[in-house]
Amino acid sequence: MREEEIIKMLQKLGLTKYESLAYITLLKLGTSKATDLTKESGIPHTRIYDVLSSLHRKGFVDIMHGTPRMYKPVNPELVFEKLKEEIISDIDAIKGALLELYKSIHGEDIPEIWTIHGFENTLERVEYIVRSARREVLINTPLEFLTLLKEEVRKRKNIIFVIVSNFDEIPEWLNKENVILAKSGGAPWLMGTWIIGDIDYALFFGALPKDRRKEKFYSFWGKSPKLIQNYMHWFYTMYFDNSDLIKPVEYEKLKKPFEIANIRTLITILKQTQLPKNIEVIGHFVDTREEATIKGKVIDYEYTSLTANITLVDENGKEWKVGGLGSYFEDVEGEKFILLE
């Protein structure tokens, strides 16, 4: 990368042009005097001390006091790891504040559905779903589109993928312990593409576009837990359950504990291993709506096109029926399922 491009990127992160230039020059020279920096970088002598003091406050430069005063560049790995943490913290804080403002005006239960225009914009949204998921991603799509997600899927190792496609054989990049694969039952099951991340985001579109139609292509993007729980139900009952399992999860190789958002994903995993399994469920009691956290062992499950629940025996020996989001027949509505072993 050229130096001009690095300077522009550093400016985006809050450094001035002179600060960016001084830090880069220090990395080249190593520990240096201010006069040496001025000579090498071209920063005016009248500005160099203010620039270095500012870099010191921002954590990019250490000052070694003495005569003459020396300036040492901080290791970029340390600088940017700290900067990344600060940026993420700031983003989370402002996102939370703005979300509270949004909810105070619009409420929490309004389904959010948008139309996405253009194939490239659709692909960007799908990649975002894969990148941002914390627990699981459900995918039903032709292999042609799935292949476009190769790099994003390859990077994610700590979430579960449940993928339905028209496989002839298992691609090497999908042969991972955290991936469940099913071969679609035929053309009717590939009429639409669904990409669902946790209970946060979902995207749908129909047939893939021809090249000449990519700009006229449309997809639909949704963000609403109550809406997405229906999409998840549709994914399993319409697509996954009518397809042939060709690669189960490699449960013993998965790093524990790990979390699942959807009861049907949980049961799909439990079907591919042996019970009982230690679990922690976080959610609400169905009758009172009070918060519930229950630890115990899964000893059984029920899975049909209409119902999905697990039987959990807690640490005191009491049995609980636990369902997923929107449960009303069970004892507990589970919002987070944590497999502990």
Rank of each mutant, 00 (worst) to 15 (best):
T237P: 00
M238F: 15
Y239I: 09
F240A: 13
D241I: 02
N242W: 00
N242Q: 09
S243V: 04
D244L: 11
D244C: 01
D244T: 15
L245T: 03
L245N: 03
I246W: 00
I246Q: 00
I246D: 01
I246T: 03
K247P: 00
K247D: 00
K247R: 14
P248V: 02
E250G: 07
E250N: 14
Y251R: 03
Y251I: 01
E252F: 04
E252K: 11
E252Q: 10
K253A: 13
L254C: 06
L254F: 05
K255I: 09
K255D: 10
P257S: 07
P257E: 06
P257L: 06
P257F: 05
F258M: 03
F258A: 04
F258N: 01
F258L: 07
E259N: 09
N262M: 06
N262C: 11
R264P: 11
R264D: 07
R264E: 09
T265W: 00
T265A: 09
I267N: 08
I267L: 10
I267G: 07
T268H: 07
T268N: 12
T268D: 05
I269H: 08
I269W: 07
K271D: 12
K271L: 11
T273S: 13
Q274A: 12
Q274D: 13
L275G: 14
P276S: 11
V281W: 06
V281Q: 07
G283H: 06
G283M: 04
G283E: 03
H284L: 12
H284G: 03
F285D: 07
F285S: 07
D287M: 14
D287L: 14
D287R: 15
R289N: 14
R289T: 12
R289L: 13
E290Q: 09
E290S: 09
